[in-house]
Simulated assay, not measured.
Amino acid sequence: MTQPQPPEILCIGSVLWDVIGRSACHMRQGSDVPGRISRLPGGVAMNIAMTLARFGLRPVLLTAIGQDPQGDELIAACGQMGMVTAHVFRSDDLPTDRYMAVEGANGLIAAIADAHSLEAAGEKILRPLVNGTLGSAEAPYAGPVALDGNLTLPVLDTIAHSPAFAAADLRVAPASPGKAERLLPFLAHRRGTLYVNLEEAAILCQQELETTSDAASALLERGARRVLVTDGDRLATEADDQGRVTLQPPKVLVTRVTGAGDTFMAAHIAAESAGNDRETALHRALAAAARYVAGGTPL
């Protein structure tokens, strides 16, 4: 008897190689300390997809990956984790993207995201959603979509207003505070659920914000349809026009930070896909993120 396929979710955005250096020492500019350096699949879309796969969903990747050996290796790694790569844009003249970060006991010290190939590919990664393969303007894709802010502002603006995305359950996260303003089209077009931290919310709202509840209110006033705002180990808030939930994340010893926000977002999507109410979904997402930053798996 054929087993039913897990539910699909589109993951649109950066899929690349993460090169992460981690040390147990406190670090500052110019520090030279012992530690471990690892290379593993990463990127916002990839981090979200990996967590979604652990929760029993089937991520379908829409991204740009080079046809270089690093790209072939990355495609193989995605397939081994249960991700669908059939719709990935493979360029023969763009290299596979990379991300490099250094983390110490006092958190993220510095990071460089080389996502130039994804940005150069632009709307080419969206072709399956407009040419009828996965959807079109006439018959838009109606399932969940996890979207990251590494895409260019024109591409994000297209997604925010295009009829091809009108029926999708868009879940949107900025790639970093420096790219938070790229989410402004989703405020202007009142589309999607935004996952941001307090700093990113302040950038979007162009004002100082003291708490995640304040940030949620400010984002809704500026046009957001629905928001989830986190602030490290302080209170997190989920809100829309129908109400809000504010919860305290678990207290844990932080051993890593890169990918924590992506884990939170994926766990929340998975919890809601399983039918949990908003308070339970937020609780489970915070718990998964806490386990992740403490060095464990999100489940």
Rank of each mutant, 00 (worst) to 15 (best):
L170W: 08
T158G: 12
G192R: 01
V130T: 06
P174K: 05
Y195T: 02
V145H: 08
R127W: 15
V172R: 00
G178M: 14
Q206H: 12
L194C: 11
E138K: 00
E200T: 02
E210I: 06
L126K: 01
A139C: 05
R182N: 14
L198G: 09
R182V: 15
P174I: 12
Y141Q: 04
D169Q: 02
R191C: 04
P144A: 07
P128Y: 15
G122F: 10
K124I: 09
P144D: 12
E119L: 11
L183Q: 08
L170P: 06
P163G: 00
T133S: 09
E181V: 14
A139M: 11
S176F: 12
D157F: 13
L198E: 01
P177T: 15
N197V: 03
S162R: 02
E119K: 11
T152P: 03
H189N: 01
K124D: 15
E181I: 15
Y141V: 03
P163I: 07
E199A: 13
P140V: 10
A201H: 01
V196E: 06
F165G: 00
L204W: 00
G149R: 04
Y195Q: 04
A160P: 02
L118D: 08
L134P: 08
V155L: 13
N197S: 02
K179W: 07
L198N: 09
S176E: 12
S136A: 06
N150R: 00
D148C: 07
L134N: 01
L118V: 13
H161M: 05
V196D: 04
A167G: 00
T133Y: 15
E199I: 12
A166H: 06
F186L: 10
R171Y: 14
A201N: 00
A175S: 14
G192D: 07
E123K: 11
L118C: 06
A142W: 10
V172N: 09
A121L: 04
K124Y: 13
L184S: 15
N197K: 00
L129V: 03
G135M: 02
N131C: 10
G132Y: 06
N197Q: 02
V155Y: 10
I125A: 02
L187E: 07
Q206F: 09
T133N: 03
V145Q: 05
A180E: 06
E210L: 10
T158R: 08
A166R: 05
E138R: 06
A137P: 13
L153C: 11
L194V: 13
G143P: 03
T193Q: 12
D169T: 06
P185V: 09
E181L: 13
S162V: 09
G132T: 07
A175M: 10
L204D: 00
L204E: 01
P154T: 12
A202E: 01
A188D: 04
A173V: 11
P185A: 08
E123R: 08
H161P: 03
L194R: 13
E138W: 12
S136P: 00
E181Q: 07
Q207A: 09
A166I: 05
V172H: 13
S136T: 09
G122E: 10
S176N: 03
A180H: 04
L156F: 06
L183V: 12
L129D: 03
D169A: 08
L198P: 02
L147G: 06
R171I: 03
